[in-house]
Design a protein around this nucleic acid. Structure first.
Lengths: 355, 355
DNA sequence: CTGAAAGCGCTTACAG
DNA sequence: CTGAAAGCGCTTACAG
């Protein structure tokens, strides 16, 4: 008995064929063999342009979607390893949502491996290999470890670094432009009238911290504004460090009119400190963060911040690594790609009453 | 190549066969047909006990794992719909991680559908059906909507409510015991010496809010302690409402020695208010939350809270719904199950210096 | 209760 | 550049 026909769905909604259209339907319509259709959907080079176009048209007309399960059954499941150390829970889960979604779309499997610290990297990588990883994703802060990248390069493992500010030439990377993002935020604060802006730096070990700070300083200078040393406080990206930094900044005789913290946790802490001093946010003090993690919309007022599309970065990272694994399997040298994702400036109540 | 026999993998280990052992290897070893092995791994009733045992032994000895992709290729992908409204980002992503993981293990596909408010439920459910959902997962606050559950019941859609405090007899549910959790927290606060404990209630529309409050009151009474009206503040589960509630509680002449907030966002707000009043946490005031969302370990001091295993709940919910869909397909009436997950008390620095 | 055969939708050799 | 055949690992009829 034939299966109950599934209702049709528009192409970008559902990923798996709701249509029941198979490769052979496409082949028939395009008057080629199934083999040729397979070549087209797998971007195989040995197809004439004319044939490719015919097939593409048939795919479009029939709304064909490859059946990932069938492909995986034939070709084996590709395993994407994720080597994580101690990113924030917020970052990791947002990233996982994107990465897992793309994995199921590509018929790949995501395997996780925790890596305590830099010393145990090598072992963690070996565990990943033992679990059958064909490629590896490395989120921060591990993505900035030269030795990890070097090791992976040596053993020929396709690798994608995620959210690193200083991408290594050793591996592919998916990231936002931290410099540009911090620049946008600074410009925004200037645009709403602030001139005396304080900055809370992040953990100096993390590459994004350096770029965000540099962008802030450069942008202020471009506007002809000096930033006195007492307007800069050192933080470590933790809420607690933000508490200390904000106290330092706000205990001056003359207070800044705005604080730009290099991540949301520290910005949230700055709000708490401001409230403790009976300062209204944003009336007495504007506060901005970076990353748009869940805490940004948990605190009140909600944080103006730079949104990193972390889920999309997870998706893109999986796409990149899958591509590299396939290239490697077909004997090609993997092409390293650096994918820059768009950030957005999220204006909320911590900087303006109009948000 | 044979591998060391290994016991069934725990859920978080690798799921796909790293072994390359197929159903036929098992069949050969057990001296039965592949068909019979298939029956055993699918819990088909028509297998003699003796045969089943033989097969199970062979599966164990060879470390056989079903190839989910191959199965999906043959049998079609089962679609699990997730109807979410506006849960916290933290809840949703933790839940998704668990649900997606289980989906890929079961060879199911997760399809998401957003539902603005209670009025548009019906439409959202129809969109989910149009996308081919075979079963539905409903996280809070929608899980408490009688009309949604009734509608799903009427159309015979397998449904699992997640994290509802008052499970409906209409549908299966996966949850923790909110009453018991709040009771543990209250007992813990009593055990470390607090007698004068204030409570911040949650949104009265949400069922967990009611139970958490009731458990607090009951437990205090059991200890022979009265809770004066001024020790209870109404919150709405938001950070902002926690700010207001905490101010109210802490502006009394005699302050409580501890505050138990019915979720982490409000507890985090209480910490901020306490700090603003130059109170040390936990020395001057202990503060506890509920849920163990990321904010619990973001703020400083980190929050003592009740950990909900949200990821595991996502996993369990998918398992339940898949089971029901299969029962439905094979013509059986779906058995409703209420799965109670274990919570844990996470003791951190917001209540004790020893954490 | 058990099994031999066919087929899910795709890809991998192998030809031409 | 293109295609006919075989097979991935599993399950669905259909027999016995």
């Amino acid at each position: 008995m034939p299966r109950a026909p599934k209702p049709a769905a528009s192409p970008d909604e559902v990923v798996r064929p709701a249509t029941g259209v198979t490769l052979y339907d496409v082949a028939e319509r395009a008057k080629v063999s199934g083999m040729t259709v397979s070549r087209v959907i797998n971007d195989n080079a040995h197809v004439s342009e004319k044939t490719r176009e015919k097939v593409m048209r048939a795919i479009e007309e029939l709304g064909y979607k490859v059946n990932v399960a069938a492909r995986a059954a034939r070709v084996g499941t590709l395993r994407v390893g994720l080597l994580y150390s101690n990113p924030s829970a917020a970052f990791l889960s947002a990233f996982l949502v994107g990465a897992m979604g793309q994995c199921s779309r590509s018929g790949a499997e995501l395997i996780l491996e925790h890596c305590e610290d830099l010393k145990t990297q090598r072992k963690a990588i070996e565990r990943l290999i033992a679990k059958g990883a064909d490629g590896v994703l490395i989120p921060p802060p591990l993505c900035d470890s030269r030795s990890a990248l070097k090791h992976l390069k040596e053993i020929g493992m396709p690798t994608v670094a995620v959210a690193t500010a200083k991408p290594s030439p050793q591996a592919s990377a998916v990231r936002i432009d931290d410099y540009d993002g911090a620049r946008s935020m600074t410009k925004y604060l200037l645009s709403i009238g602030h001139r005396d802006i304080a900055f809370i730096k992040g953990d100096p070990e993390h590459t994004p911290a350096q770029l965000r700070y540099q962008a802030f300083i450069d942008t202020m200078h471009e506007e002809g504004l000096q930033v006195p040393a007492e307007r800069i406080a050192q933080g470590m990206f933790t809420y607690r460090s933000g508490l200390l930094a904000a106290r330092e900044l706000l205990s001056q005789k003359v207070r800044p009119t705005a604080i730009f913290a290099s991540n949301d946790d520290m910005a949230a802490a700055a709000i708490a400190v401001a409230h403790g001093m009976h300062l209204q946010v944003p009336e007495d003090l504007a506060i901005a963060g970076f990353d748009d993690t869940p805490v940004a919309v948990t605190v009140w007022p909600e944080l103006t911040t730079i949104h990193q599309p972390i889920g999309d970065m997870g998706r893109a990272a999986v796409e990149l690594v899958v591509e590299q694994v396939k290239e490697k399997r077909s004997g090609h040298a993997p092409t390293l790609k650096h994918h820059l994702m768009p950030y957005t400036l999220e204006v909320r109540e911590s900087t303006t009453l109009d948000a």
